[in-house]
Amino acid sequence: MHQFLRLSRVLARTLVHAVPTVIGIVILDFFLLRLAPGDAADVMAGESGAATEETMAALRSRFGLDLPVLDQLLAYLSNLAHFSLGYSPRYNMPVADLILQRLPSSLALMGIALGLALVIGVGLGVVMATQVGRWPDRVLSVLALLFYSVPSFWIGLMLIVLFSVHLGWLPSGGAGSIGTEATGLAALLDKARYMLLPALALSLFYVAIYARLTRAAMLEVRSQDFIRTARAKGLSPMAVTLRHALRNALLPVTTIAGVHLGGLMGGAVVVETVYSWPGLGRLAYEAVMSRDFTVLLGVLLLSSFLVILANILVDLLQAWLDPRIEAAP
């Protein structure tokens, strides 16, 4: 019961901070996007090859682009109050429907990428910490530095060259085999083949961060009194490492992982474009190119919600890992 009440206080504190954060993000993003030159009517007119002033005025009037900026902001906030993300001039459909079509693909890609980064990064960090100063630690440190330094789009292209062009093991892009009628496990395996390379390209940067962070945290924890007590009790080195040192070392890793969810969305813009993955990152890129700021605002708002949700989960996880963590008074 005490554990439940403590987790409830942590959840309440995070939710109180989340509401003004979301409102501030919406307003700031709205004004920043209005600083960009052009609008959706300009792009649509350019694609048509010709447009009169009357046609341009009709397009702007239809989508409310001719209103003053403050009126556009109030109209957008009114739509949000009615649980609407507006209407897309480019795709000629509600923004919410458009985002819902792309959301599952992005969540799957980001979830697998973050999972790979945490599992591989924490595993490498444990090896580096237990072999500190030896050749495994030095080799893995160099690899971590390499993954951290190389841009994700270059890694993505090199993975395509290696696994798709030279070896022919995995497809170079897309989200599934065209025309396939596979269902069940066969369909899942087909989807996994197309997802593996983009997820790996997106995760390698974070693998380097989590490996270095886990190594540093475990080396710091290893000198604490409770570790020496666990060893004095006769526990095996494996038990001391996994049950005591690693559990406490995971606190900074989980904090950074929550922050990185927003970075994953930013990296997904590049990776999804390289691999033609139909997710929110590619949708955001298309919205920027077409000046469809309503769609872009919807993607940014959803990204903010995902980051806040991740922070809530991280706060709850940390409160579970460390009973000393309490909500602020």
Rank of each mutant, 00 (worst) to 15 (best):
D71V: 06
L100E: 06
L98Y: 00
L5I: 08
T14M: 12
L103S: 05
E53C: 04
A40G: 14
T52Q: 08
R60M: 07
T21I: 13
G86C: 01
I25F: 14
A75T: 02
L107K: 06
L33F: 12
L35A: 15
L107T: 10
E54N: 09
F30A: 11
S106G: 09
L70K: 02
G115L: 12
L7H: 07
V16S: 10
G115M: 03
L35Y: 08
M93Q: 11
A41M: 12
A40N: 12
A75Y: 09
A51D: 09
L98A: 06
L35H: 05
S78R: 09
L5G: 14
D66H: 02
P20I: 14
L98T: 00
G38E: 14
L59G: 05
M56Y: 03
A41E: 06
Y91S: 13
G38I: 02
A41T: 10
S84H: 10
S106K: 03
A108I: 05
D42P: 03
A36H: 06
L100F: 08
E47V: 07
L11Q: 03
M93L: 14
A58I: 08
A75G: 15
L33V: 06
A108M: 13
R13A: 12
I25Y: 12
A45P: 03
T14L: 09
G49M: 06
G86R: 00
A51S: 14
L109I: 13
T55F: 04
S48Q: 14
M110F: 05
I25D: 02
S61H: 13
P20H: 07
R6F: 14
I99N: 05
L65Y: 03
L65A: 10
R90H: 08
N92M: 09
R13Q: 13
A41N: 07
A12L: 15
L74T: 04
V16L: 14
R62L: 13
E53G: 06
Y91I: 10
P37A: 06
G64F: 04
M44L: 15
G24S: 14
T52A: 05
R34P: 02
L65F: 07
L74R: 09
P94E: 08
R13T: 11
H17T: 15
Q101W: 05
M110P: 01
I25V: 15
L7P: 05
E47W: 04
G86N: 01
D71L: 07
Y87R: 06
P68Q: 13
L74P: 00
R6V: 03
A58F: 05
L114F: 04
P89R: 01
A75E: 07
E47G: 11
V16E: 09
A57H: 13
V43S: 12
R60V: 11
V10W: 02
S78D: 15
T14I: 12
G38M: 11
A57C: 13
I99K: 13
R9Y: 10
G115P: 05
I27A: 10
L65I: 08
A50E: 15
F83L: 12
F63P: 02
G64S: 09
D29E: 07
E47H: 10
L59Y: 03
Y87G: 00
A81C: 06
Q101E: 15
G115N: 03
F83K: 05
S61M: 13
L65W: 04
T55R: 09
S106W: 00
T21P: 02
S61T: 15
L32Y: 04
A50P: 01
E54S: 15
A75V: 01
E54Y: 10
D71C: 03
R90E: 06
